[in-house]
C-alpha cells in the first residue's frame, strides 16, 4: 500500500491557488542538463481514435497536437478533461494526464483542478449534448464564475455516441430517432448562451478550417479566464453535410467576424450570434474581468495576511482557543 503523499516533492509544489497566469508561466520539470524539444505528434498521440473515418473530431485532435507542439507544452503542464460522448473520448487519444469523467459534468471537475492547480493549464473537450443539455447548468455557472480554463465544444448538432437522437443544437426539422417527424424544440444558440452566461472569451470555428481552429485555440488558451470555443465538427455518421454551408470546399462560405467588430462590445457580439447559419467565425467577445481563480487568490492572500506568519496548526489552535 502506497500512501499518496510520501516525501517532500522535488518540484515546487503549488501553493493554493497562485496568482492566475496569462500563458507562458508553467513549470517545466527537466532532468539535469536536459534540453527538451517540443513534443512531436508521435509522442503526444496515444490510442488510435475510435471515431468514424471522416469525423470532424479528428481535425480538432490534430490541431490540439499542433497547439501543444507550437506552444511547447509538456505533459507536466496541462490536463485534458472530458465528459461523455464521441467527442468526449478525446483524452484517450492524447498521451498526457487526462480524465474521462461523467456525462455533462466535465466543467465542474475541471474547475476543481483549475482552482487548486495554478501550475496546470486545463483543457476541456465535449459535445453539444454534454455541454448544453445535461451539462447546461454547469456551462452557465463555469462561465459566470469565469474559471480559468479552455473549453472546446465539438458541436455536431446531434447525439453521436448514442446514435442519432436530437441534440439541443439540432436545427428545427432535423429528423432523428427521437424526432422522427423533425425536431420541434428551439435549438440553443451556443454563442448567445455563452454571452448571456457571462463567458469572458467567446469564439466560433469549424473543423474544416484547420488554421482557424488552431488560431482560436491559441487565443482561448492565452485568455485569462473562461475561454469558450464552439467548433462545428461534422458527424459523418448521423448528420452528414450538416456544415457544408460553412465549407468553401463543399460550395459553402466561411465568413470571418468583420475586421471592425469590437470584441469588447457585448451587444455587437449578440448581433453576430444572431446571424442565420452558417453565421460568422472568429472571436465574438472578450472581456478582462477577474477570474474566479484571481478572486479566490485575493481572498486567500488577505486572509493569510490576517493570520500573519502562523503555521496551519497554530491557526487551528487559535480557533480552538476561542471555543474554550
Amino acid at each position: 500500500m502506497t500512501p499518496i503523499v510520501t516525501e517532500a516533492p522535488t518540484t515546487q509544489a503549488p501553493t493554493l491557488p497562485a496568482p492566475s497566469r496569462t500563458g507562458g508561466t508553467f513549470t517545466v520539470v527537466n532532468r539535469p542538463g536536459e534540453e527538451r524539444k517540443a513534443l512531436t505528434k508521435k509522442e503526444i498521440a496515444a490510442d488510435h481514435p475510435t471515431w468514424c473515418p471522416g469525423c470532424g473530431d479528428f481535425s480538432v485532435l490534430a490541431l490540439y497536437f499542433k497547439l501543444i507542439e507550437k506552444r511547447r507544452l509538456f505533459q507536466e503542464q496541462f490536463v485534458s478533461i472530458a465528459g461523455i460522448g464521441c467527442s468526449s473520448r478525446f483524452p484517450y487519444f492524447v498521451q498526457a494526464h487526462g480524465v474521462h469523467y461523467i456525462h455533462g459534468r466535465a466543467l465542474p471537475f475541471a474547475t476543481g483542478i483549475s482552482l487548486t492547480r495554478p501550475d496546470l493549464h486545463v483543457f476541456v473537450f465535449g459535445g453539444d449534448g454534454d455541454a448544453f443539455s445535461i451539462g447546461g447548468n454547469h456551462f452557465t455557472h463555469a462561465a459566470r464564475k469565469n474559471v480559468k480554463l479552455t473549453y472546446v465544444v465539438m458541436d455536431n448538432f446531434v447525439y453521436g455516441l448514442t446514435k442519432k437522437q436530437t441534440s439541443p443544437t439540432s436545427p428545427l426539422g432535423f429528423k432523428s430517432k427521437t424526432d422522427m417527424w423533425g425536431a420541434m424544440d428551439q435549438p440553443i444558440n451556443p454563442m448567445k448562451q455563452a454571452l448571456a452566461a457571462g463567458a469572458t472569451f467567446v469564439a466560433r470555428t469549424t473543423h474544416s478550417n484547420p488554421n482557424h481552429v488552431l488560431a482560436m485555440m491559441e487565443a482561448a488558451m492565452d485568455h485569462d479566464g473562461f475561454g469558450f470555443i464552439e467548433c462545428l465538427s461534422e458527424c459523418v455518421e448521423f448528420y452528414e453535410g450538416a456544415f457544408d454551408a460553412s465549407n468553401p470546399r463543399k460550395g459553402g462560405q466561411f465568413v470571418e467576424v468583420p475586421k471592425d467588430h469590437n470584441v469588447a462590445d457585448e451587444i455587437a457580439a449578440y448581433r453576430l450570434a444572431d446571424q442565420p447559419f452558417p453565421g460568422y467565425f472568429g472571436v465574438f467577445y472578450k472581456n478582462g474581468r477577474p477570474t474566479k481563480n484571481a478572486n479566490e487568490a485575493k481572498i486567500i492572500a488577505d486572509q493569510r495576511a490576517k493570520v500573519g506568519g502562523l503555521k496551519d496548526w497554530e491557526i487551528l489552535k487559535k480557533s480552538f482557543d476561542r471555543m474554550k
Binding site: I4, I81, V99, Y101, I102, R105, L107, P108, F109, A110, T111, G112, I113, L115, T116, R117, L120, N137, H138, H141
Partner: peptide, 14 residues
Amino acid sequence: IAAVSMAMGASYAG
C-alpha cells in the same frame, strides 16, 4: 452534482 464533481477534480489534482 457540480459540487461533488468539483471536489473530485480537486482530489484528482492531488
